[in-house]
Structures are given as structure tokens and as C-alpha cells.
Design a protein around this nucleic acid. Structure first.
Length: 465
DNA sequence: GGAACTCGCCAC
DNA sequence: AAACGTGGCGAGTTCC
């Protein structure tokens, strides 16, 4: 895959982007080194306690007897061999390389207490060895300086390394707390994070111009994921926590994978495993989350509606998939076909931002690359413009990083309001003016940490009053 | 002793 | 007809 900013506009974006990223890299993010050391020690103790417990189990003894050398619970091949060859269990899933998988989803499915213990140890090790270790290793005088690369990704997105600032835990509450509690703004400042809402969906509209999808993006009263939740689970959305959970299941288990090119068989399996009650998925009678005041469970509800097995859920999702592309978003579907045809004829696809993707591509790539790349370029354009503004106007606030569709700043509290307004203006007003091909409104969300507070303490924040 | 590989897992 | 996009990184393993 050849790097090819095909126009001078694209070149300028990379050039100015590199300079802006460089300035953010130089700023860095403060690390509480003492905290990191203490937290690593605490995790180590916790890991040891868990190890001791595990070693006392019959499971572990049987494992020990089956190997010549010492048992290594970090070794996927060793665990796979023990479970599927020695113990003779049926692998619920195979890896890419054809071995019995021992990833989290698989081990949960096997439903063995010792495996859950291994998962707990894995999680703590990940926090300690991937994140805290990295911060300690990479910090200089109490600051890390993550790199933000613009020249490494086939889609013209960015990447980050040393340490990677773009994969800090967020969803898992415990991991999020531990890791983000290590990161701070400069003394007397506060961290601010601004992210585009549904940026890739919005940018996809600029390519395919699907009227129904544009309506979803433009009209705040509509909600694509809520509608899909109602269709997939045959439930009227009521805003309860349980229904929010199902909305997220529809979004992350069907809608987004479909956008990336996945299909109903995988969707059905994933949703049943991830969001259902194991080991029998959402279809076990009486299992799963309750969906109303009477305590009816999702499993029962689906059975009442004729969906009695993963197989029948699959068949049902197949219909929904065809409806999704044939009726709901037909213009998006046509665009995907057209873009693939264009790639096969010419051997490349162009981005709305003046970049060109060459090289061997699979069908999904030809549509995913231009969307992913152009979406990031929106962020990059705003980043450059904000960097310039903050510098020209002599603000004390600084840009310190970027996560594909989000910008992270180190803000001087006295400038918070002015900077907020500037950010809102640049990201949602100036960008669409500069790039007229952006035909849907862009929105941003923000989160703010207390003055001298860590990144774990962020709370939702309105950019403009 | 290091390169290249697999596997697992974190983010968008 | 086919079937999930982009990264970085750690640990284990194999090969040279």
C-alpha cells in the first residue's frame, strides 16, 4: 500500500498535521510516577494471591501433571493443549491458525471456575504490564510523550506509540480507573476531551448520500440504533437501563458490524454470546435480562415470538439484514457496489480529502478505507486549526493528543470558556465551511476533568452554555 | 540473541 | 459470491 496524498490539499494536511502532532508530542502528558509504582505493587500482590488460589486447585494439579516443564498460565498454546487435548473438551471456537481458542469469550463459555480465575489474572496483568509499565518506561521527568503517526496506516488514519495513547482502557470500569488515574494535566490545569459524535456515520453520508441515513443524522428525534433495537428484539423502546443495554447490543452487535461488512450469521452468534446469558445465549428460557416490569426475560420474550434457538435467530437476522440494505439504506448499498466496481476497474479509490488508496483490497476495504480516512481527516483539520489558533492568540492551553475522532487538551482554567467556544466553533462550524463536501451537520461531545484531577475523573461537559 | 510468527486484548 | 475495518503492544514460541 503506497502512501499517496494525491492532491496538494492532501499534502498540506499531512504537512501541517505532522507539525501540529509534533507540538502535541512535545507537550506530553503528566504521569504520577509514585502512583504507578504503588499501583503496580498492589496489582502484583493481587496477582500473586490469585495465583496461589489457582495453584491449590485440582484443575491446576491436573494441568501440572500433564506438562513436563512448569505450567505457564500466560501461554495460550499450553492452556489450549491442556483443555482440548489432555482434558478432551470440545473447543467452542478455533483461532485464525486453527487451534482451540482460549480467549475470554471462549473461556467464559466453558464455565469452569479456574478459567474465570485465569481471566481475572490476565486482566490484572494487562493493566500492569501493558499500561502502567509503559507509562513508567516512557516517562521523562514525569511526562510521557506519545507519538502520533500520520504515515503508517493504510486508510490515512493516524496511529500512536511509545506509549500508545489511543488504546487506554475506557469501558471496563476497574481498568479505566487504575490506568487513567496515572495521567494528569500540567499543575494547575485540567484535561478536556472533545469527540465527534458518530463521525464515521456522518462522513459515510458524504459519500453515499443515502436519504434515510442522512435523516437519521440530521433529525435529533430519530435514532437509528433504537429503531434497530426495536426491530431485532421485537420490543418497543422504553428508555429503561435494560432497553439501553439492548440498544447497545443492536448498535455494536448488528449495525456497526454491518457497516464494516459483516453479515447476519456472525451477528447472531456474537449477540447471543456477548449479550446473552451463558452458556445457552439469550434463548434459554428464563435466562437473560428482564425487559419489562413483569420481569419477562429476553429469552422468554424471543421464544414467545418464535425465536427459539441461535439458528432461528440467525434466520431472523438474515431477513433483517436484507431489509437493512434493501429498504432502510438502499442508496448506501448501491454506493458500496459502485465503489467496489470502481476499485476493480481502476485499482484505487479516492478519499473526499484528496488522498488515494492503492494496492490489493478486499471488497469491504474499498468502502471502509475512504470513510475511515476522511473521518480522521476531519479531526486532523480541526486539530491543525486549533493548534494554530491557540498559538497565534497566545493561550496557555495546549493540545496534547488525539484519538481518531477525539482531541485531548490540557486547559488553563482561566481560559476554559474561551477555549470551549473556540473548539466548538472550529470543529462544527469552520470545518464544514472549509470542506463543502460535508453535507451533514457535525456535532461534538465533551468531557472535563477537575483542575489537577486525573483523566479518570472526567465528567460530561457542555462546550457552550 | 534477535526476527518473525501467533494469540490475546486495549482503543476507535 | 462472500462474509468485520484500522492500529500497538506484551507474552510465548519457533527459527535462524
Amino acid at each position: 500500500m503506497k502512501l499517496n496524498p494525491n492532491t496538494s490539499q492532501a499534502y498540506q494536511l499531512l504537512h501541517n498535521g505532522s507539525l501540529a502532532m509534533g507540538r502535541a508530542e512535545r507537550q506530553g502528558i503528566r504521569v504520577d510516577v509514585e502512583y504507578v509504582k504503588k499501583e503496580k505493587a498492589r496489582l502484583s500482590k493481587n496477582i500473586n494471591t490469585n495465583m496461589t488460589k489457582l495453584k491449590g486447585s485440582k484443575f491446576y494439579k491436573r494441568w501440572e501433571e500433564s506438562v513436563l516443564k512448569e505450567v505457564n498460565i500466560n501461554s495460550a498454546p499450553q492452556l489450549s493443549k491442556f483443555l482440548y487435548k489432555v482434558q478432551g473438551l470440545e473447543p467452542p471456537k478455533l483461532t485464525e491458525g486453527g487451534q482451540g481458542s482460549v480467549d475470554e469469550e471462549t473461556l467464559l463459555q466453558l464455565n469452569i471456575p479456574e478459567l474465570n480465575q485465569i481471566l481475572q489474572i490476565r486482566k490484572l496483568k494487562k493493566i500492569r504490564d501493558t499500561y502502567l509499565d509503559q507509562f513508567q518506561r516512557e516517562q521523562v521527568d514525569g511526562y510521557i510523550h506519545p507519538f502520533f503517526n500520520l504515515h503508517l496506516v493504510r486508510t490515512y488514519r493516524s496511529s500512536s506509540n511509545s506509549p500508545n495513547f489511543q488504546n487506554i482502557p475506557k469501558r471496563d470500569e476497574e481498568a479505566m480507573q487504575i490506568v487513567r488515574s496515572a495521567l494528569y494535566p500540567r499543575p494547575g490545569h485540567q484535561l478536556l476531551e472533545v469527540d465527534y459524535k458518530g463521525l464515521e456515520v456522518a462522513i459515510s453520508c458524504c459519500y453515499h448520500k443515502d436519504e434515510n441515513m442522512i435523516k437519521y443524522v440530521k433529525d435529533k428525534k430519530t435514532d437509528m440504533h433504537r429503531d434497530m433495537m426495536e426491530q431485532i428484539f421485537k420490543i418497543k423502546y422504553n428508555g429503561s437501563d435494560e432497553h439501553k443495554h439492548l440498544r447497545a447490543a443492536a448498535k455494536n452487535g448488528f449495525v456497526f458490524p454491518q457497516f464494516y461488512g459483516d453479515y447476519f450469521v456472525n451477528n447472531a452468534r456474537d449477540m447471543a454470546c456477548k449479550w446473552g446469558e451463558l452458556p445457552n445465549g439469550i434463548f434459554k428460557d428464563g435466562a437473560g435480562i428482564s425487559i419489562d416490569d413483569q420481569g419477562t426475560t429476553l429469552g422468554t420474550h424471543l421464544r414467545d415470538n418464535g425465536i427459539k434457538s441461535i439458528r432461528s435467530f440467525e434466520t431472523y437476522l438474515e431477513k433483517i439484514q436484507y431489509d437493512f440494505w434493501d429498504n432502510r439504506f438502499p442508496q448506501y448499498a448501491q454506493w458500496k457496489q459502485k465503489w467496489w466496481d470502481v476499485y476493480r476497474r481502476r485499482g484505487f479509490v479516492d478519499l473526499l480529502t484528496g488522498f488515494r488508496c492503492h494496492g490489493v483490497m478486499a471488497r469491504n476495504d474499498a468502502t471502509n478505507y475512504p470513510i475511515q480516512g476522511a473521518a480522521f481527516h476531519c479531526l486532523l483539520w480541526a486539530f491543525i486549526e486549533l493548534d494554530r489558533s491557540l498559538m497565534v492568540d497566545g493561550w496557555k492551553s495546549r493540545l496534547i493528543g488525539q484519538i481518531h475522532d477525539a482531541i485531548i487538551l490540557d486547559v488553563y482554567p482561566g481560559e476554559l470558556e474561551a477555549v470551549s467556544e473556540l473548539i466548538h466553533h472550529v470543529t462544527t462550524k469552520e470545518l464544514p465551511k472549509a470542506w463543502p463536501w460535508i453535507i451533514v451537520p457535525l456535532e461534538v461531545d465533551a468531557e472535563l476533568c477537575p483542575v489537577d484531577g486525573s483523566w479518570a475523573e472526567k465528567e460530561s461537559y457542555k462546550l457552550i452554555a
